[in-house]
Computed example of a mutant assay.
Amino acid sequence: MEIQEKEISVATQKWTEYTLINDQGMSVSCLNYGGIITSIYTPDKNDNFENVILSYANYEDYLENPNFFGALIGRVAGRIDQATFTLDGKTYSLPKNEGNNHLHGGTAGFHQVIWQTTPFQTNKAVGVRLVHVSPDGDGGYPGNIKMTVTYTLTNDNDFTITYKATTDQNTILTTTNHAYFNLSGSLKRDILNHEVMLHANEFVELDHELIPTGKILPVDDTVFDFRKAHPIIDGVHSVDQQNLVASNGYDHYFIFNQSEQPNAVVTDPESGRQVIVTTDQPGMVMYTSNGLDDSLQLRERSSAKYLGVCLETQASPASLEYEGFPSIRLNKDKTYHKTTTFSFRRS
C-alpha cells in the first residue's frame, strides 16, 4: 500500500492531490481543496482498471465546480427553502445560490475551502485526514464548527468516509460527498442501465424547485421501489410526476430501512463492477445527473445528461420545516459522527 502526493498550482492557490493505492491496485485520489475526490480506479470483470467517477480534465475547473464533482458538502447537504431557517427561536439567513434557495452549503461551503490534511498508513489501510474550522457565522450558520473528515482505503477495496464534528453553539449540520459514479469505466457509457438496489420503503416528495413538500411517500408500485434491483432508465422513461419534476430522472431523498444492510447497491451488468453502500446515515439522495449538459470537459470525454449517479448519504434539511424527517440539528454538547463505506466489488 502507498500514498502518492502531487502539488498543483491553480490560479493563486497551491493544492495537494493525494492518491491512495492498495495492494490490489485500486486507487482513490483526492484534493485538499474541497476534499474533492478526483478519481477512483477499480477493476472490471476482466481486471481492467478504469476511473469510475466523473472528473474534470483541468484542475482549474474545480475552483467553481457548480456541479460539485467529487466534493465534500457542508455545512448542510441539500436544499434549504428560501435560504432561511429558524433554530431556538432565531431566524438565520443564508446565501441564495440556486434561485431563492440555498444549496449544498452555499457559495462558500466545504467544497471551496483548503483543508488541513494529514496522510496516514497502517497495516491494513491508507488514508488522508482532513480538518477544517468553520467560524461562527460562516455562510450564515451559527457556531464554531471543527470538522474532521477521514478518507480510508483498505486492501478489501473498501473506501470509507468518516465525518466528525463538534460545535460550541446549537447549530445544523449534515455532510456528504458528491461523487458521480459511472461503473462502466472511463465514462464509456451513461448510467441508464446501471441497476440500483435500495433498502428504502419511503421517499420524499419534491415540488417544482426540488424542495421537499413535507410529504413522505411509499415506494410501493412506483419506479421509486428499489427494494428489488432495477435499472435507472425506468425512472427516466417514467411518467410519474416525481420523475418529471426531477427533469426525467431521480433527485430524491430515500429514507433507509435501518435494519437492512447494505443500504444500497449499484451494479453495471456490462462491466461487472458493483459499489455497495453501507452507512449509519438515515437516508440518501440519489441524483442521476439529470441537469448535466455537454458543456464540461471531463477527463475522458465531454459531460452529458445521465453520465453519473450520486449516492449522497445524509440527513434531511426538510426537518427544519417538517416533523418526521431525519434531523440535522447538532447541539453544542453533542458530537456529529457519521460513516459511509463504498465497497467496490465485481458482480
Rank of each mutant, 00 (worst) to 15 (best):
Y56L: 12
Q112L: 05
L72I: 10
A108C: 09
N58W: 05
T118H: 11
F120R: 10
I73Y: 00
A83W: 00
Y141W: 08
A71F: 02
G109D: 02
S134K: 03
V76F: 02
V76I: 15
L103Q: 03
L94F: 01
L153V: 01
Q121H: 11
V76C: 15
E98T: 12
G137I: 03
E64N: 14
T84M: 04
T86K: 13
N155E: 15
H102Q: 09
N144C: 06
Y92M: 05
V113P: 06
I145S: 01
E60Q: 14
G70A: 13
A108S: 14
D61V: 04
T154L: 04
S93I: 02
K124M: 11
L94D: 02
G74M: 01
Y141K: 03
I161F: 08
A57P: 15
N100P: 06
T117I: 11
K124W: 06
N100R: 12
Q116N: 15
D158G: 08
F85I: 02
V133I: 15
H102K: 08
L94Y: 02
T86S: 15
K90S: 12
N101G: 09
K124E: 14
A57E: 15
T84P: 07
A71M: 09
H102D: 11
F69G: 00
Q121T: 14
G143A: 05
S134T: 12
P66V: 09
T148G: 07
T150L: 05
T154I: 04
H111L: 03
A77Q: 03
G74P: 05
T107L: 08
Q82S: 15
D156F: 01
T150M: 07
Q112Y: 02
Y59F: 13
R75H: 14
Y92C: 06
I145G: 00
G143I: 00
N157H: 14
N123I: 13
N157Y: 04
E60V: 09
D61N: 15
A77Y: 00
Y59M: 14
T84C: 13
Y92D: 12
G109F: 05
V128K: 04
G70F: 07
V149Q: 01
K96P: 11
N67G: 09
L63P: 12
Y92G: 09
S134Y: 03
M147R: 00
K96E: 12
Y59G: 07
K90L: 07
T152D: 02
L103D: 04
F69R: 01
Y56A: 12
H132T: 06
F69L: 15
Q82T: 12
G78T: 07
D81Y: 06
Q121E: 14
S93G: 11
L72H: 07
E60K: 13
V113E: 11
A125D: 10
T84I: 10
T152S: 10
R75G: 05
E60A: 15
R79N: 10
L130M: 15
L153R: 07
Y62N: 10
T118S: 15
L94R: 00
P95V: 00
N97Q: 05
N144G: 05
